[in-house]
């Protein structure tokens, strides 16, 4: 990377503009598309090029993790959900016009504020001289892993004790996050499980109601016959999986 920087000083800008354009363009695609599956596809491309921006900024490990966890895991889950719920009525859903107007106004003003902030600070706007030693110093996976286990190797150079104490690693957040993930795993599995049990009880209760109904109207065989017919009609439909037609 640093070698290329010597050869062609604009490579960073070039790739930045490519990735940023893809990210923002497909972000707009997510916003403006009505088809939920296409939205998911645009989101994949947008987040993938965001990973490219992370690589450009020197955060290789985070970029790879973005590709692996976010794009490869989370978005697959999301698309999974999309496909489970993508019935005909829900694929294309229109938004009310007043919602659009309101959201555009609020979003536009938010964007103005954020951009004003982004370009407002002098320190962020002015480029600094990048010496190649820093550019090539992207081997940050090991310090990252050590920081997650509570050892900060990158702050050792700073000699003040306050820094050494205050930046003593991310072991606690790491453990909290791992427990959080475990809880989420169990919780999500519990919530998304198939509700066969409750359906069965529902059936049972309806059957009990039917029994009560029958007991009450035992003298009226006509009613029962009617019910049986409808019941038969239903049960004739049910076992036929719609997928087995044709």
């Amino acid at each position: 990377m640093d070698l290329i920087a010597v050869a062609w000083p604009y490579w960073h800008q070039f790739f930045f503009i490519i990735f940023a354009t893809i990210a923002i363009g497909f972000g707009f695609g997510v916003l403006l598309s009505k088809n939920v599956v296409r939205m998911a596809f645009y989101l994949v491309l947008s987040l993938g090029s965001t990973a490219g921006l992370f690589f450009l900024a020197g955060a290789e490990f985070v970029g790879a993790m973005q590709l692996m966890i976010y794009v490869g895991g989370t978005l697959v889950l999301l698309i999974f959900g999309v496909m489970l719920t993508a019935q005909k009525d829900f694929i294309n859903m229109d938004t009310h016009t007043q919602d659009w107007i309101l959201a555009t106004i609020v979003g536009g003003s938010l964007l103005m504020v954020l951009l004003f902030g982004a370009f407002g600070a002098e320190d962020w706007r002015t480029p600094q001289d990048i010496n190649d030693a820093h550019v090539s110093a992207t081997k940050e996976a090991t310090p990252l892993g050590l920081a997650l286990t509570g050892i900060r190797v990158d702050t050792l150079g700073e000699s003040t004790d306050a820094v050494a104490d205050g930046k003593s690693g991310y072991l606690m957040p790491f453990i909290i996050v791992s427990f959080h993930l475990l809880v989420v795993l169990i919780g999500a599995a519990y919530m998304a499980r198939t509700k066969k049990l409750s359906h069965a009880t529902d059936d049972k209760s309806s059957r009990a109601k039917l029994m009560l109904f029958k007991m009450e109207h035992e003298e009226e065989p006509l009613e029962e016959a009617k019910y049986v017919v409808t019941h038969k009609g239903k049960s004739a439909l049910n076992p036929l999986d719609p997928n087995d037609e044709d």
Binding site: V44, G48, E60, F61, A64, M65, L67, M68, V71, G72, G73
Partner: peptide, 9 residues
């Protein structure tokens, strides 16, 4: 991880 991540796509 890059190889695995990209392959996962």
């Amino acid at each position: 991880f890059f190889v695995l991540a990209v392959l996962g796509l």
